[in-house]
Design a protein around this nucleic acid. Sequence first.
DNA 1: GTCTATAGCCAGATAGAC
DNA 2: GTCTATCTGGCTATAGAC
Lengths: 205, 205
Amino acid sequence: MGRLAFREQVLRVREDAILTAVNRLLADKGFDLMTVDEVAAEVGIAKASLYKHFASKEALAAAALVRLLERTMAVVESPPVPAEATAFQRLRSVVRWALALQVAGEMPSLPSQNSSLRAELLSSKDYLDLLMRVSEKLGQWIVQAQADGDIDTRLPPEVVLYTIYARGCDPVPVFLKGTGQYSDEQIVEWVLSSCLDGLRSRPAA
Amino acid sequence: MGRLAFREQVLRVREDAILTAVNRLLADKGFDLMTVDEVAAEVGIAKASLYKHFASKEALAAAALVRLLERTMAVVESPPVPAEATAFQRLRSVVRWALALQVAGEMPSLPSQNSSLRAELLSSKDYLDLLMRVSEKLGQWIVQAQADGDIDTRLPPEVVLYTIYARGCDPVPVFLKGTGQYSDEQIVEWVLSSCLDGLRSRPAA
DNA sequence: GTCTATAGCCAGATAGAC
DNA sequence: GTCTATCTGGCTATAGAC
């Protein structure tokens, strides 16, 4: 029993190491250009061993995305700091977290287009459940923020939700980081501002 | 002489047909998932014939992107309609044009990440020249719009420029179109608004 | 469950006849 | 310049020994 639990722990640690490698490679090159050989090399095990843990390359990526959604759910459900009481402030906080992940090179980017990956994701109950839970929570905040007068009521909540999700594959943070001129924090704040406040000037508050 | 010019015209028309197919496929599946066989099939010629016109898959995509930049340059240099006199209005007009291309499924999407395509683009004088010309023109408008008080002066022009370029690979229009609930025009206006005005409410003008 | 070795496949690119 | 047929390399996935 203790022995079994120990082995199971070893298994989970190894699989977590695999998913960390997958996550990094997905952030770096995306699904199509990531090869299973690279994943195995980065983890330091043989490719065949990988396939004992995950059935396919798609399953590998799906597991990494499920882990990302679990972390997102944890962020969304964490108790708010007192300074972030409104729905709008909580939304901003989540977007800021996602942008920080992106700048740090830890945001796995999936192809939004055609791919065998899409089919795998759409048939993964874990993935779909988590995605729905995150979307429902964010959707509630969006509706609340609109009722509070903080988010433009002319935009359907669906448009706001997609726009926020799209920050997860926004190329701007990576480009700005590539110039080497700005700090990570500065980049995050600029992209956050362009998303929430827009490019246009706003009258002083 | 006339004969030669005629043959050259036939050549250009054929190559334009090829690039139109490439453009559509790039918009549909992206560079990595597009296959040269598909391009040949869509044009209705053999794959080997394609390679008489373009040296590689990368060259094929690069040529399509050059054509896109040429069209962009034409839009940027076209005389403004009287109602769009300010730099900000001209910028908005260009972004709207790009979003309309996107919704119509005619915006080729290149992988912003690692790829053999990047190397090809960086070694294409045509591509780099056009990209610089477009960027300079847009950059001038951005600076002017900031001087006019229309664009947030806390954002460096570079950040504004990248944010505008990023609209070319924004997944939101395609997602919204996928719901089948909204008209193309409605989608363009919402995304344009979220980009320029932001998600936050603005005080009435 | 880990490894080495390899099967099987697919896509980019080319040979060579016409 | 167009075609058919083929080469080549790389990648996913698996066989089989330990």
